[in-house]
Amino acid sequence: MALPSDAKKQIIEFCESKAKSKSKFYFNDFTKIFPDAKAREVKKVLTELVNEEIMIFWSSGSTTMYGLKGAGKQTAAEHEA
């Protein structure tokens, strides 16, 4: 089944709803929002959000997570622009 047309909005709202406790999310946190969609469809939307600079990748080197740009302590703590 294809993703709903407001998939991007749902992803952003999901991240914002968890903002108090979490700023980074595993990929499969997003596939759970769209249980009927294929993982590759969800990945395409996340990639678009990254390309639009709404979301960012966070990587430990071994694991990668997604988060809203500017969310969490990481940005300031890393002395990034």
Binding site: T47, V50, N51, I56, F57, W58, S59, S60, G61, T64, G67, Q74, T75, E78, H79, E80
Partner: peptide, 19 residues
């Protein structure tokens, strides 16, 4: 300090942040 948001645009791998 290991890990971070650094990378090249559009890529989610290939760069490992270290501070």
């Amino acid at each position: 300090k290991h890990g971070g948001i650094v990378g090249v645009f559009g890529y989610g791998g290939g760069v490992i942040g270290r501070y």
